[in-house]
Design a protein around this nucleic acid. Structure first.
Lengths: 163, 163
DNA sequence: GTTACTGCAAACGATTTGCAAGTGG
DNA sequence: CCACTTGCAAATCGTTTGCAGTAAC
């Protein structure tokens, strides 16, 4: 079994646990979408290309279901979302990609990816191979104490209901 | 003259130069919008609140003009844009604010600001005062060589036309 | 005078929603 | 079976656009 197959199984199991714990249904669509993301995407992808790609592989889904499922995948941390502009959302699998920075041209909107640390240090020098840096922003995603607490309570209730 | 008045004059001059050089018209709306941003906003703001705030100060502008002008301000670097979600664009004046990171709760969407370096180091430890970090992304904005070259050509043409 | 800019209202497009039909538990 | 999901089409909402009137130069 190659490493990608192993990863696909791992994330499937994780999604399974997540759905079971939260009492969400384990529908074929949900697993197909996750598997499609982990087997046929490498870097960034958007909803439209994911939709077309799944249709092309002869898996019928609606866009509504895609959006619904992506929300679950974001919530359980298997997929990460990037917002590059008002109408430019890109997604990315969380595992199996190296962590990277995003270099964005504010004129044409092109996004490049660069290895974290290497770029971060050279940014300080304000100029890296033909790209003129104007500013940079760090976005740190996670869960605040309020939501973390609410989640914990919710989960406790669910587990209790199991007896 | 206090430091904010000084800053307002500085950015006005810079905008003036930018508009003149590019042969864009120096309309009262454009200067009013810039001045409003530099005098009545501190941290993040969005277009809707900017619009309402300007109307409240008895300055009539249309949303179309606001968007048009913000594009110019972004282009000349006097304003910076943050995209926190598909429908959450926030803007911020470039000068007169300390540089900061953005801490975003993926559940409720709240955004906190934190001083750059202090947070960056504590992020590595994966947990900062009651906020659980899941991942972080660095976005580096600037101009790629292609657009930079195109801009330079454009500018050269404009200057030449002046004789 | 020309031409770019403004304001208005209508258009846009990615995402969300309401509802009927389908299906997991 | 019942409630959750799905698929479809219509609705949403921030942003953009077309057009007629206005003002910068």
């Amino acid at each position: 079994m190659d490493s990608n197959q192993k990863l696909r199984k791992q994330v499937k199991d994780e999604f399974m646990n997540y759905l079971t714990l939260r009492k969400h249904r384990r529908t074929p669509e949900r697993f197909a979408i996750l598997d499609h993301i982990y087997s046929s995407t490498k870097g960034h992808f958007d909803m439209d290309s994911l939709y077309k790609s799944m249709i092309e592989s002869n898996f019928r889904v609606s866009r509504a279901t895609l959006y619904n499922t992506i929300d679950l995948l974001l919530d359980c941390g298997l997929v990460v979302k990037h917002q590059f502009g008002a109408n430019v959302s890109k997604y990315e699998r969380k595992y199996g990609n190296e962590n990277h920075d995003h270099i964005i041209c504010t004129v044409c909107g092109t996004v490049w990816e660069a290895k974290n640390e290497a770029f971060f240090t050279s940014v300080q020098q304000k100029k890296i191979k033909k790209f003129t840096v104007h500013y940079y922003s760090m976005y740190i995603y996670g869960i605040c104490s309020k939501c973390s607490h609410a989640k914990k309570m919710e989960l406790r209730k669910l587990k209790k209901a199991d007896k």
